[in-house]
Design a protein around this nucleic acid. Structure first.
Lengths: 122, 122, 122, 122
DNA sequence: GTGGTCTAGACCACC
DNA sequence: GTGGTCTAGACCACG
């Protein structure tokens, strides 16, 4: 994993784990790497990982128990809202990008529907 | 401008100019940099620029007249088809990305329409 | 037991025994430790214990019979007045503390009653 | 300031500042010591102060701006809820303590009212 | 082994 | 000067 220099590393780690929850790499209840292990894997200080994990803990994304490790939450409500947020963001970005071509919203919808029909969704 | 190492540089130059036509940086009939000038600007060999310009010439994207320079085509049909291609690509990419969230095409359309309505297009 | 350095030790011992009477650790008529034993337990001079016991004797809190030991008084009147004093002190402290929040006496009463109702006293 | 060893230092610092907000030592909008300064005053590592301040930031108790310093929130709603919480805690503790004397809730209320009347509130 | 806290000291961004 | 992040390494509590 590579980090950019503008965002704090711990936020990039959070976003990475969020992404893995969203795309199904991490399933509800699944154990995630220990702080020490992940620190070694990413070549980062354990305290930086700790910071990321604690923030996820506060946001209820993971649950953690001393001596046991940390696990993705089993609360589907939280996971769903995570996915919904991501979906909303993609919808927003997609629409903005499509609008930049100077077509009306109505035309955009038509183009999308035409594409969907033509593709015979897999 | 930065080049990646996998694609040939001349195709990357073509794509860059196409992008500038699509997003309006280059308008129909507008002069584009001379081969020699662009070669110096990008730090590449003039022959590479020549290759790019020749391909665009063949596709009628630009017209060149000896001793005058090179100009974006004034043929709206060509420019429109360029834009249409780009738009199609964006539509395709957007739909694929949206589908990856596991929602039905119908749901996707609804989400987009809801977003468009909510945004009060600028 | 730990002693502070500002009050005399013998008064602290008295207060400790009073507290044990009030909270039921020592029941009426119950035997309390011998002077010698308590001196050893607390690591203080037997004369200090003697002083404490004598004062309690004077206040009729305990009765001592030579060769038998010392016992909490069986006189409920005395014990009750001890408890009443303690209760008064707690009432006073509580009200002062509650008043420090800047609420009126009326509001304080209401808050207490609301809490009592909400708690479903055990 | 002295710290106990069971609670983390940073929570003790938070509680101390909360107390100062509640009892009016810190007023809304007032600047609080810089992290470095407080660290020196308390003989604690700046990172520990940072941890405390960040938690208070998240809970909107303080607002902070880089290069400027940190300030008690000016949001009265938050300050009031802080005070209400503290008051509730005191009410609860007081009632529990008073109940431990074996009197009925009704008797307790009467004792408090009698005390309030007798004191001629200052 | 795990997580949680703390210290010491560094560097950067802001103003 | 201020706050914010990161590293290196230590110690403790839990199981």
């Amino acid at each position: 994993m590579e980090f950019n220099k503008v965002e704090p590393i711990y936020t990039q780690i959070i976003e990475d784990i969020k992404l893995k929850i969203i795309n199904g790499t991490y399933l509800p209840g699944q154990e995630i790497p220990s702080r020490r292990q992940l620190a070694k894997d990413l070549g980062v200080n354990p305290n930086t990982i700790q910071r990321a994990y604690r923030e996820m803990e506060e946001k209820k994304l993971i649950v953690t128990s001393r001596g046991q490790g940390s696990f993705i939450t089993s609360d589907q409500t939280i996971i769903n809202s995570l996915k919904d947020e991501a979906l909303s963001r993609v919808v927003s970005q997609s629409v903005e990008k499509l609008r930049s071509f100077g077509r009306s919203d109505h035309e955009i919808i038509e183009l999308i529907q035409k594409f969907m029909k033509g593709e015979h969704r897999k």
